[in-house]
Computed example of a mutant assay.
Amino acid sequence: MSAIKIERLTKDFGRGKGIYDMSFQIEQGEVFGFLGPNGAGKTTTIRHLLGFLKPQSGHATILGMDTWKKPKEVQKHLGYLPGEIAFPNDMKGMQFIEYIARMRKLNDLSKAKRLIEMFEFDPNADLKRMSKGMKQKVGIICAFMHDPEILILDEPTSGLDPLMQARFIELIRNEKKAGKSILMSSHLFEEVEGTSDRIGMIKGGRLISVIDPKDISNAENKTYKIEFLNAEDFVSMQSEVFLIKEAKPEHNQLIIDISDENINELLLALSMRKVRFISEIKHTLEEHFMGYYEGGNNHVQ
């Protein structure tokens, strides 16, 4: 049984806003990155998983339970970090954490205390005086402290400095090792690529691609930057049959795309010319994502 399963989920708010025919599933122990710009439909999808919205068609289940029909049962197994957190103004950080713990009937705060230490959080500070980053730490602690089976995280590192972002990634990896299933919505490529087993890309409320990030770095097509010692070799190389993505005559540089099976032909051509250097340009998740957005591809791969 999948930890999270969404089947043909549709919620049309009109004027192109909403989600349409959304389908994907997250297996137990898997981190699923949900990538897209603001307004693409990530939060709307999450609200369906939390039981806050009723779908027009399709359905969503968590641990086999319909999220609209059994929201209370589903909530018992969830840790949720919203994209925008609203806090009361009359509490200190620890008072709020204890309040959430009581709501969850949680008596053991040992994990909360470990997270307070991990994120160097001052629990005695007033919520109303906290920075965005401090409030985000409160949200993270409340989402993780009851050790839930399923974690749904909406823009989880918003407001965190680079050190705390690194601590958060460490936390995600530890939770994954413990067998937790995690949906992490974000628009930050490095965050998603560094933690996810699979990544779903959303555009205009539709899922356009689901990929394994390892497939990007291990792609058969490679890109190389080559700089020649003289203009003659730079010019003559362009008469070869390789796909040239970019030429920089002021530096005698070429950017060439080539498949693994043709690498020997490239090396042979370069052996007949004077080369200053050759380096591989690694393909990135951002490049893959922008290819879908700029290329107008709207089909799940």
Rank of each mutant, 00 (worst) to 15 (best):
D257C: 11
D260R: 03
S259C: 12
S217R: 09
E193K: 07
E261D: 15
I182R: 13
P249S: 15
S217T: 08
K248T: 10
E246C: 02
D257Q: 13
E193Y: 09
R198D: 05
E193I: 01
L254W: 02
F228G: 11
G204Y: 11
G200H: 11
K248S: 11
K214E: 02
Y224Q: 04
A231H: 07
Q238M: 04
F228A: 09
F228N: 12
S236C: 09
A247I: 04
L254V: 02
P213F: 00
F189A: 10
I182P: 13
S239V: 08
N218M: 01
R198Y: 03
N221Y: 03
S196N: 05
M201P: 07
F189P: 08
S217H: 08
S185V: 15
D212T: 02
K203F: 10
A219Q: 07
K214R: 00
M237P: 04
A231G: 06
I216D: 08
S185P: 15
I216Q: 07
I244D: 00
L243W: 09
E261R: 15
N218S: 00
I182A: 14
T195Q: 06
E193H: 07
D215K: 10
I202H: 05
K245T: 02
E227A: 11
I255W: 04
N221P: 09
I202D: 08
D197Q: 02
Y224D: 05
I199C: 06
L183Q: 05
I216V: 08
V241L: 09
N218Q: 03
L243C: 09
S196W: 01
D197K: 05
M201I: 04
N218E: 02
G194H: 07
D260I: 04
G204V: 10
L243P: 12
I199S: 06
L207V: 07
S196L: 01
Q238V: 07
L188E: 15
I255P: 03
G204D: 14
I182L: 14
I202W: 05
I258H: 00
S259K: 14
G194Q: 11
K222E: 01
L229K: 15
E250S: 15
F189W: 15
V241H: 10
R206G: 15
N221C: 09
E227S: 12
F242L: 01
T195K: 06
A219E: 04
E190D: 15
L254G: 00
D260P: 04
E232G: 10
E193L: 05
N252K: 09
I226F: 01
I216M: 10
D257K: 12
G200N: 06
I256V: 03
K222Q: 04
P213A: 02
K222V: 01
I255R: 02
E261K: 12
V235S: 13
S239L: 07
F228K: 10
I199N: 05
A219C: 04
G204F: 12
P249W: 15
G194F: 03
G204E: 14
N218K: 01
E220H: 07
K222A: 02
R206Y: 13
G204T: 13
H251Y: 14
L207Y: 12
I244F: 01
E261T: 15
E246G: 00
F234C: 05
A247N: 06
E246P: 00
S259N: 14
F234N: 03
S196Q: 05
A231K: 11
I202M: 10
I255A: 03
S185C: 15
G204L: 08
